[in-house]
Nucleic acid binder design. Structure first.
Length: 789
DNA sequence: GTGTAATGCTATTGG
DNA sequence: AGCATTACAC
């Protein structure tokens, strides 16, 4: 395609942004303003101008975005040119560079990439060794603390020396966090492993400590582009800044209004302060929205106007006003699902649209189940994005652990995973012994196992023999690595490890499916095996593909990266986070409720609440034609039915853009056509005497709302109603007193010593002469009152 | 050491 | 309600 042609497809600002290739550029791109188009055309433009694709680095946040962009560039400039572009996620691009430069940092070039599970498991091991309580030091939060440190480029040493951090940790009763961080880092290093954050952290170390390396990449990447710049963290910011320091041909694209990854360290200041970093910055604002109706754009502007921290920008559109945004109330989460399913059904009937034109978005993954069930009932096909990806399934991780071990026997997490799977008589005790010795001697478990002369292992002859067999097996895999093609070795490992046999013998539905998944993995490896290798310069080379090559970047793949089945006509279900960058004609945003969206955890700080609001902005602006917001009045959480109030966000849209309806699902939900979104009055939970009982909550009249009687909502329900607790249990909860004699169907007669907890989770401590003292949850316990004393 | 029953914890968001 | 870890029996 000639240059003129694609430049004509751009509006004035877009065109200027594409043509301004030299020097620092910031493109503030409102939702739906053609950001991807500008980015791809910009790269195409550079190539047409004669810039070598090897000199262009484009960083994205998802593999999918990178792939999409690459293929769009291909259609403009042709495949050979596009192939040589450095384009990918931060993690994948720098993993590639790190593998190339690994020795400088003391890592093997085939280092393992630990995924979150590996990291957590390692943290658990360390906690055990340090005798720290994992209820105080929750592995997940320990990991996010470590992750935050790495993302801010704080080394373990710096962490331990920083008074402020140390105080923080003491205040949160976790004074040993720094020690855990230190141990964690050194264990990863000894295992030849990097976690996700290391891919950026170690890149920073590399660029900091090896000026020649920095120089090399600075001159290699003469043009640097960063997509979704508002989502970069400090570590990424520094990398980008350093790489672009020589030529300053840096172009960042982003939208502060769509910054939704603060929770994992993204720093919105990176975009807000970009001007300070580059005084001669040229800024382009893409403000025309091509995606959505005027109603949606204006409503989205309403929402974001409630945020204080933002760059000035006016998103507008030439599109029609379109229909109003629908808002529906459902009685429960299940009914919300039904309502959505029925609405989709009706849209399809009335407007001749397809399943793939719909997306259902939610705040948390747990919300998907009710929606799935409802869609299944109406035979509407759907696809869930997010959740467990193929490579996170247990059976897949098991087999891959063998592959990892073959490539890098020091990989401790892989070792622990399969040393006794399938069971071969190497149990917990033995593994612990090895682990302790490894820790004491500051070496890897593999080293301990394979050098009994240096590290005497106090195990029996039988155990020692079993260990020997395992070692021999792994060694043989290791030797096979360079001389066997990926597929034959993978198949061999699946066989001789016993995994295939283990799964084959399980004839349950799940077992069969696990077996099939293994087959699918092997097929994928076969496909990989038969695809050509590419060298450093992007040239195709004749060479055998090996298994370690295959597993290298698997940890970086996510669910969204599984073969794009775009041809499939299915409704998309995903979290709002996962929906960023996507668009659909019809978008449902479900669970518009206080404490869910905005999340309860966001209510304590302005910054967090503003991020939730941006999240809502992102959700709404995914819609092209019709947005439909839904909320439920009650929903199950941890097995309990809780009462929910409509989200405050609903009030932040001017009513003229909204159309309230009871929903299209069942007659029961149709009683009302309008309601008061949310009562601003603060109210206290009622006393037990006036509180409606759990099973009454099922009656619809309890929940009747009316715009003319704003207090009804408040007056009608309690904050926490019980799950349909049986009438018997309910009576029990209300009547039971300390000192009463009760009868339990299993424990016999006993005496009530104590009653505590808030209804319906009231607990009683009862002493049974036969079995001793027991704590009973009254809503479940089958207790009968015998007498009052 | 292995397998099963009981217990207890959890659910922001993700590369 | 579902899942992972733990406790206990074999």
């Amino acid at each position: 395609m000639a240059e003129r042609d694609y430049l004509n497809e751009l509006n004035d600002v877009q065109r200027l942004a594409v043509q301004h290739t030299e020097g620092p550029v910031m493109i503030i791109a409102g939702a739906g303003s053609g950001k991807t188009r500008v980015l791809t055309y910009r790269i195409a433009h550079l190539l047409e101008k004669g810039v070598d694709p090897f000199n262009i680095l484009a960083l994205t946040f998802t593999n999918k975005a990178a792939r999409e962009m690459k293929s769009r560039i291909e259609t403009i400039v042709g495949g050979t040119e596009a192939r040589n572009l450095w384009m990918g996620t931060f993690h994948s691009v720098f993993a590639k560079i790190l593998r190339f430069e690994a020795e400088k940092l003391g890592y093997p070039s085939n280092f393992t990439i630990y995924d979150t599970d590996d990291s957590k498991s390692l943290i658990k091991t360390i906690l055990k060794e340090e005798q720290l309580d994992d209820k105080v030091y929750k592995p997940g939060s320990v990991l996010s603390r470590i992750s935050a440190a790495k993302s801010s480029l704080i080394s373990p040493t710096a962490y331990l020396q920083n008074n402020e951090i140390q105080n923080d940790d003491k205040m949160s009763a976790k004074p040993k966090l720094g020690i855990v961080y230190q141990k964690y880092a050194s264990r990863c290093f000894k295992s030849g492993a990097m976690d996700f954050d290391d891919l950026l952290y170690q890149t920073n170390i590399l660029l900091r400590d090896f000026p020649d390396v920095l120089h090399k990449y600075q001159h290699k990447f003469r043009y640097v582009m960063v997509d979704e710049y508002q989502d970069t963290n400090f570590s990424q910011y520094v990398i980008v800044k350093k790489l672009a320091a020589v030529f300053e041909n840096i172009c960042v694209v982003g939208d502060d209004a769509q910054s939704i990854y603060g929770f994992r360290g993204a720093n919105i200041q990176n975009i807000l302060n970009f001007e300070k970093d580059y005084p001669d910055l040229k800024t382009f604002k893409l403000e025309q929205n091509y995606r959505s109706t005027k109603t949606i754009v204006d409503a989205a502007n309403n929402i974001i106007a409630h945020n204080r921290d933002q760059l000035k920008k006016e998103v507008w559109t030439d599109n029609d006003a379109g229909t109003k945004i629908k808002v529906s109330r459902a009685m429960s989460d299940n009914e919300e699902g039904a309502l959505i399913a029925h609405a989709i059904f009706e849209y399809k009937m009335n407007e001749q649209v397809h399943d793939k034109d719909f997306a259902v978005l939610y705040r948390t993954n747990a919300q998907s189940r009710a929606i799935e069930e409802a869609l299944r009932k109406l035979n509407i096909s759907y696809r869930i994005y997010g959740g467990l990806s193929f490579y996170q399934r247990k059976e897949i991780k098991d087999l891959i652990a063998y592959f990892r071990l073959a490539a890098n026997p020091a990989d401790e997490e892989a070792l622990k995973r399969v040393i006794n799977y399938p069971t071969r008589g190497i149990g917990k005790t033995t593994i612990e012994k090895i682990s302790v010795i490894a820790s004491e001697r500051d070496t890897s478990m593999w080293d301990v196992m394979t050098n009994p002369a240096h590290h005497p292992l106090p195990v029996h002859g039988g155990t020692s023999e079993k260990l020997g067999n395992f070692i021999t097996m792994i060694k043989s895999f290791n030797i096979g690595l360079p001389k066997t093609s990926a597929y034959s070795l993978a198949e061999h490992i699946a066989q001789s490890s016993g995994i295939l046999k283990e799964l084959y013998s399980d004839k349950s539905t799940e077992g069969v499916s696990r077996y099939e998944n293994i087959q699918e993995l092997l097929n994928a490896i076969k496909e990989f095996d038969e695809s050509p290798a590419v060298d450093e310069n992007g040239e195709l080379i004749e060479r055998m593909r090996t298994l370690d090559e295959f597993i290298q970047d698997i940890a970086l793949l996510t669910d969204a990266d599984e073969k794009d089945k775009d041809d499939l006509d299915k409704v998309s279900l995903m979290t709002i986070h996962a929906a960023k960058g996507l668009e659909f004609p019809y978008v449902f945003v479900s669970g518009m409720e206080e404490n869910l969206f905005p999340s309860q955890l966001s209510l304590n700080s302005r910054a967090d609440l503003e991020e939730e609001r941006r999240l809502f902005y992102v959700a709404l602006t995914r819609a092209e034609k019709q947005a439909h917001l839904t909320f439920a009045v009650s929903r199950y959480k941890w097995g309990n039915l809780i009462h929910c109030e409509p989200s405050r966000f609903l009030e932040e849209i001017e009513p003229k853009y909204l159309e309230f309806s009871g929903g299209a699902s069942t007659a029961r939900t149709n009683v009302e056509t309008s309601f008061e979104p949310r009562q601003k009055t603060v109210w206290k939970p009622k006393t037990p005497e006036t509180r409606p009982t759990g099973y009454q909550a099922k009656e619809k009249k309890t929940y009747t709302h009316s715009s003319t009687k704003p207090n009804l909502t408040r007056a009608s329900t309690s904050q926490i109603t019980s799950k349909p607790v049986g009438a018997d249990q309910l009576e029990l909860i209300q009547k039971l007193q300390v000192g009463m004699q009760v009868e339990h169907e299993k424990f016999g007669n006993g005496k009530v010593l104590q009653i505590e907890g808030i209804m319906p989770n009231t607990k009683a401590t009862v002493f049974f002469p036969d079995v001793g003292q027991k704590q009973l949850l009254l809503k479940f316990a089958k207790l009968r009152i015998i007498s009052n004393n």
